[in-house]
Amino acid sequence: MKDNILKVHNLKVSFQTYAGEVQAVRGVSFELNKGEVLAIVGESGCGKSVTAQSIMRLIPSPPSVIKEGSIRFNGTTEITTCTNHQMEAIRGSEIGMIFQDPMTSLNPTMTIGKQITEGIIKHKKVSVTEANRRAVDILTLVGISNPEGRMQQYPHEFSGGMRQRVMIAIALACSPKLLIADEPTTALDVTIQAQIIDLMKNLAEQTEASIILITHDLGVVAEMAQRVLVMYAGKVVEQGTVDELFYNPQHPYTWGLLRSIPRLDQPADSELVPIPGTPPDLFAPPPGCAFAARCPYAMKVCIETDPEHRSVSDSHSAACWLLHPDAPRVDRPIEAGGVTQ
């Protein structure tokens, strides 16, 4: 049995606005094992980034509030009750984060070297000389050539791919146990994406860090992750291993995601099948399944009552009324292996 590095239980996060309460995360639960890569996928606005930033306690409060739930890190630390001072000791040292847009996340007025050594000096209590040496080592590790010279440069002097490597270097500078990567390849071209994916895979193996990968790119998921959470409207609708999600998906939303991406085994002129409709308004979430209004298989019970998670295997579950023993059988609209690499 693997040890848990992170256990999130029934997490509920809302934003208080002038228009009312936005229920951004509505009862999310999952576990992350040591050395594991867990992907969280879903449409924009489904709660992926809010969940990740709640783990780091990076969302300003107010307007955000953790209404309910537990985030237990490394078996003993309850993140939801940590003080700001305690979180400052955890961020960077125990939990690192790679943000979505390095150009807005890096400080344009500070050299790259200063931004990397800042965390090392704070958390490791070492001299400036030792911090600089570690910074050079970590830049070399992430594939930056001439690291000594690059330490003196500013973010605008780097390309997009190199800035993302610097973000990874900052996140890894203090050897955290958990690394959260929030869509780390979104703004990069496909060649650089492949390089960043290979880099993160190699670093995960070398440092034995656990990784939470936030993405909407199922190709990245297939390449990097061992387990996957599929989120919709602030909830986890399906979770399982990568093979289970790609070869035996159970939720109609997962089917829709897999059908809406290109496949190498389909003719070049094949049309992608989009998911019709839009996600629900999280000011007033529907009483039943949030996906019911967009689901071609929706039944009366789907509209009235929110389904519970039902186990497909020991590691695979989905929240769908189609898994109920009394539900009608439907033909899955995708073949086994919804994505072909």
Rank of each mutant, 00 (worst) to 15 (best):
K201V: 01
F15R: 02
L179S: 00
C289Q: 13
K114E: 15
M162S: 10
R227A: 09
P102I: 06
K12H: 14
D331P: 06
K300N: 15
R134H: 12
G277V: 08
Q164V: 07
L178Q: 02
T129L: 10
Y247K: 08
P184G: 02
P267C: 06
I303S: 15
K7M: 10
T81E: 15
Y232P: 06
G256N: 12
S315V: 00
L188E: 07
S270L: 08
Q266I: 00
G92W: 11
G96K: 03
V230I: 04
C295Y: 09
R165S: 04
T76L: 13
P325H: 12
N84L: 13
I180F: 05
P252S: 12
V142R: 01
I95L: 07
I138V: 14
M56C: 12
N146P: 03
S93R: 13
E36V: 00
R332F: 02
R134K: 15
A327M: 12
T254C: 11
A131W: 09
P147W: 01
P267K: 05
L141A: 14
E88G: 10
V8C: 01
A131R: 11
S105Y: 11
F30I: 01
V230A: 08
V13C: 01
Q206T: 10
E308K: 13
D326M: 06
D265Y: 08
V8A: 10
S49D: 04
G160H: 05
A171V: 01
V8D: 03
V22K: 04
T109H: 12
P155M: 03
P267H: 02
L58F: 09
R163F: 03
I90K: 02
I192C: 10
I138G: 03
V312G: 14
T340H: 12
C46K: 06
P108V: 00
A89R: 11
P184F: 03
P155H: 00
F158D: 03
F15I: 04
S175N: 14
A39E: 08
Q195S: 14
I95K: 00
T254S: 15
P296I: 07
K67T: 00
A204M: 10
Y297R: 10
G337R: 05
E308W: 01
E36H: 02
A39Q: 04
I66K: 04
E78S: 13
V126S: 01
A209P: 04
D217Y: 05
W255Y: 15
G149E: 05
P286G: 13
A52G: 15
I144Y: 08
I40H: 14
S70P: 03
L203A: 02
N132P: 01
P328H: 13
G160W: 03
D243M: 05
Q152L: 13
M1E: 11
Q266T: 07
Q266F: 05
L218Y: 02
P328E: 00
I95E: 07
L264P: 06
D314S: 10
R259C: 12
A52V: 04
M103V: 09
A173Q: 04
E304P: 04
I112K: 10
A336F: 02
